[in-house]
Amino acid sequence: MNPNEVIDAYLADVMRRVPGGARDGIDLELRGLLADMLDDRAREAGRPADDAMVLELLRGFGTPAEVAARYHAPSLVIVPAEGTRTFAWMALVGVGLQWALTLPGVFRGESFARWWLSWGLGALWWPGLMVMLSLLAAWLRQRGLPKPAWSPHQVDPERVHRGAMAFGLAGFAVGVAGMTSLPWLVGAMPPPLPGVLAFDPAFLHGRAWLVLPLWIGSFAVMARALSQGRWSVRLRRLDLAFGAAWLLLLGWWAATGGMFLAEATDQGARGGIALVMLFVAIDLVVKLRRRQRAPRLSSTLGRRTP
């Protein structure tokens, strides 16, 4: 290759990466610039330009990708710098959780290839969804979406946000109504759903009813907190006790199975229950830590108060 051919090849690589409308101008500009630079080098070296001189010049000028990047306007920031760590953790934990819940089947003898082509790769829906939501948020930011005004964090952790809690309780009631009527609803569903979602009668009569006192108790505690506007010590203890009771009941169901007549549905339900147990456990830990921190916070504030 002669020096001109080397420059041609380099510029072809750059041009593939620059905006289409500006290609001709940038090509001519860079060609002129590189020719001037090469002339200078040849004059300084006291010999005509050769391949080695051109290669040295181009390597110092930057890779084609680097050169092309200089011609691009600053691109859309999908995940802002302050959110990168949280984004990465949420993506990894989401995928890890799905793998942790589904991978044990492989150790029990199921095909790894089958797992990989179903849950293994399928778990990547989560980071994909996160990217799509981040893209939407970036687009809204670019459109100048009004930023929410900053407001101080709630100092009293036991204070109840009445609007959110009322909404949560309404959702709770609707969910409970749906779940308790499910055994009757299933019978009215079109085939094959009655067969797929049919409960095991032994489960309904032996273990399922225990959920009712827990539902009623949890609902009553939350309704009381809503009416009082804050969590009292007694209500918080009751809430923790109900949380622990939920863990025990769900753990019992998940461990023993036999909730649905269809084996596949039962397996799916056990996986779902394990996920719910994880959320309940996290909620319990957060509440317990908050209870431990609250006295420290109040004593610190007390010391600062003149």
Partner: peptide, 8 residues
């Protein structure tokens, strides 16, 4: 490499 994009 910096000058030309700046001019553009």
């Amino acid at each position: 490499g910096t000058l030309y994009p700046l001019l553009r």
